[in-house]
Structure formats: C-alpha cells, structure tokens
C-alpha cells in the first residue's frame, strides 16, 4: 500500500489515506522520511485519513523531527476530525504546524 505524492516547486505533498495503524504506519513513515531525504519541504495531507493511532502519530512526530533538523518545511494539511481528535488528545495540535483547510503551505 503506497501513498500518493505530488511534487511542486521544492515542496512535496504526501497524501496519507485510510487507516494509519500499526500495520500501515511503517509505510507512511517510510514515505514521509524518503520524501524529506529528497530535500523537499513536506506537506502531509491527512484529508483521506479515517483513523490514526499512536504509531501513526509517532510517524508524524519523527518526520517533523527530521524536517526540523534538516531545515525543511513541515506542515500538516486537511486535518479532519478523527485525526485532530487524536492530535489534540496527545497535545500535539499545538506542536505541529497545521494549515487550516488548504493542502499547500501558505
């Protein structure tokens, strides 16, 4: 199961979708880290995510760490209610840069 990536002027948008759980988080994590390894600023579009658990959140955290240390942009976009619920529960909604609505960085 792979995730769609769209590249645009130095920024890559990774579209995560479906259930990001223990089974699929490794694929999500790899996609995010691989994209950052290409020195692309990263937008993680979570519009299609219907469920996310701690392993999925951990993938986002790790990608954010990597982006920070690499001085690359990192934004979450299209954060729907199921994801926001978990992010806020973990108090990470204040940690991640989240773009309201649009899936491209401002």
């Amino acid at each position: 199961m792979s995730f769609r990536i769209s590249d645009n002027a130095g920024t890559s948008t990774v579209f995560l979708s479906g259930e990001i759980d223990l089974e699929r988080s490794p694929a999500a994590r790899k996609t995010l880290l691989d994209t950052l390894a290409r020195k692309q600023a990263l937008v993680v579009d979570l519009g299609g995510v219907t469920y996310i658990d701690s392993s999925g959140i951990a993938s986002l955290v790790e990608a954010y760490q990597k982006a920070r240390t690499s001085n690359l942009g990192f934004t979450l976009a299209e954060v729907g209610p199921p994801v926001m619920r978990v992010l806020s529960l973990a108090r990470l909604d204040k940690v991640f840069p989240i773009t309201p609505g649009a899936s491209h960085p401002a």
Binding site: L22, S55, I57, A58, E62
Partner: peptide
C-alpha cells in the same frame, strides 16, 4: 514519550 511513540518500529513489531 516520543521514543515510546516511535516504539512501534522497534524490532519491526509492525511487520
């Protein structure tokens, strides 16, 4: 916490 959150990948538990 972050380490723990990342624990799913330790030892390839997911796979």
């Amino acid at each position: 916490v972050l380490d723990g959150a990342l624990a799913p990948f330790a030892g390839s538990a997911a796979g």
